[in-house]
Simulated assay, not measured.
Amino acid sequence: MFQKDFRFVGKHATYVKFLVNNAKIFQRNIDVYMLGALIGITYDKTSTKDMNSNDDTLIPVSAFITEKTNCIFIYRLVMLLSDAKGEEMNMENRLNRAFRDGVEQDAEGKMKDNMNLFHSYVLGGVEKIYELYTSDITGKDEYLERMMEVLEDFQDTDVIKNNELDEETLLKYM
């Protein structure tokens, strides 16, 4: 998990480059990646790789090494909150997906599926961030205003709606 480069391609690469290089809202591609996952799960927005363009940009493994703790935390949060493929999952399955899948030797396929799900939220989140920062914005001051609006919206969002997650249940998996 998070032990190799990640490449944004197509429109997602274009969006990431815009957010990092042009709008200068983020300093690094990995910052867009991490927030993309959080925004994707918050807005329940997923996407698939766009192969309609040759544009690409890379997050090197060194960035993942630097941000590994944050990436794992965000990954686990997404796995706990996501209903994979629209299926209602009980808390035990969510906890397995977040903390156990990939640890056991026979779970390599599960880990690949989980990472694909995680990346679908990253890509959906990148699209949402781009949408939020490109609609009706003409200057740097407006980027700051929009950032404050997004943070306020994010803070007011009730992401965790499942009351099955209590401390006792969580401690069994840690």
Rank of each mutant, 00 (worst) to 15 (best):
S62C: 02
Y15N: 00
K68N: 08
V78P: 05
A23L: 04
L77E: 09
D141I: 13
Y33P: 05
I129R: 09
A37N: 05
E88A: 09
Y143R: 07
T134I: 08
K68T: 00
D166M: 10
R97W: 05
F8C: 10
E92G: 01
K110Y: 02
D101H: 05
M89G: 04
N54Q: 08
K11R: 15
A107I: 02
L171G: 06
L165N: 06
Y143H: 15
D5I: 09
T138Y: 09
M51R: 11
N163Y: 06
K112W: 11
K161E: 15
D56K: 08
R28T: 08
Y130Q: 09
N70C: 04
Q155A: 11
K172Q: 01
L170W: 02
K11T: 09
E108T: 14
K172H: 02
F118L: 15
V126A: 05
K128S: 07
P60W: 03
D56N: 14
E88M: 05
I74T: 01
E167A: 00
V61T: 13
L117T: 14
Y121R: 02
M89Q: 04
T169G: 01
Y133H: 06
F26W: 00
G125A: 12
I25A: 03
V20S: 12
D55F: 01
F6I: 13
K85F: 07
L58K: 10
D141V: 14
F99G: 02
S82Y: 01
T69D: 12
N22P: 02
D113L: 08
N163R: 12
T66L: 04
K110L: 10
E88K: 10
K11Y: 14
A63G: 02
P60N: 05
H12P: 11
L95R: 00
D166C: 13
M91H: 02
A37L: 09
E167G: 07
D158W: 11
D55Y: 04
N96E: 03
V159S: 05
Y121Q: 06
M89N: 02
N163I: 09
N114T: 04
T66R: 04
F26C: 00
L132I: 14
L81F: 00
Q27W: 15
T134A: 13
K110T: 01
I59S: 07
K110V: 01
E88G: 00
A37T: 04
